[in-house]
Amino acid sequence: MAITMAQAINAALRDAMEADDRVLIFGEDVGRLGGVFRVTDGLQATFGEERCFDTPLAESGIIGTAIGLAMYGFRPVPEMQFDGFTYPAFEQIVSHLAKMPNRSRGTVKLPVTVRIPYGGGIGAVEHHSESPEAYWAHTAGLKVMTPGTPEDGYAMMREAIAMDDPVIFLEPKRRYWMKSDAELPITTQPAREAVVRREGTDVSVFCYGPMVRTALEAADAAADEGWSLEVVDLRSLSPLDTATMVASVERTGRAIVVHEAAMTLGMGAEIAARIQERAFYHLEAPVLRATGYDTPYPPAKLEEFWLPDVDRILDMVERSMSY
């Protein structure tokens, strides 16, 4: 059956609500409208307004009340409508969602899954294309996941909702319409394990979310040039599967990290550090990064010049191979 990432996530939410009546979905326009991307389509009709509801337009309010609902015993799955509008909730996420279980010595559990459509490439207006993953991955107490395929959209969402830790679930919005052939329910590896999407011998390409597909396209193009890329989909950004990354670099001797987020202090910085800490003697070249630039996200007409793409990845491959 052909299924898009948006449909896969929708099915995961539906199945999670079916399986556990403590699962609640709420946020801006998620109820009647089914979300601006329709990811929560039909859930209110099936499960009623008590379990899938529209909230007032207040992101801090959405996350803060999710914390209280979780303290009561629910498993909230709040939505932040867009990446660029998570910032009003920053304090609730960083100071409370991430910290309260620890502050309470484990007596308070916050099984909250915060859904955030993120990333660019859809020609959106300002504030609708951001990649804020480093903020969350930097914050102890949060788990951060991002699916790169429809299959993972389903399986990782189910896993996130079932977890007792708070999860920031980043949905690559430009891949919402990406299709796969799959039968529901889908099981994949646990989210904490990175997955080698394509084996290769020359360069390891570490990517996640929206860039998984881009990296696979780059691997096709690279093959024409005679370079064999290994594409590793990280899936979980916190924790990071260091072992799989290191094993890949031990095979290839070269590494490139790809992400949409700006370069400085992005995930690439952490990944490069871990690789040089653990695979130093295997490296034939410095770890390179193909990322967005250190500027604010560009206006829509310029995003193609800003976002990492096949060409930027191939440039890095060439640089890496030249060592």
Binding site: S60, G68, Y72
Partner: peptide, 13 residues
């Protein structure tokens, strides 16, 4: 910030 946690817990109740 706790006012929101209180409200969420009340919504749960």
């Amino acid at each position: 910030t706790q006012a929101l946690h209180a409200t969420g817990l009340a919504m749960g109740a």
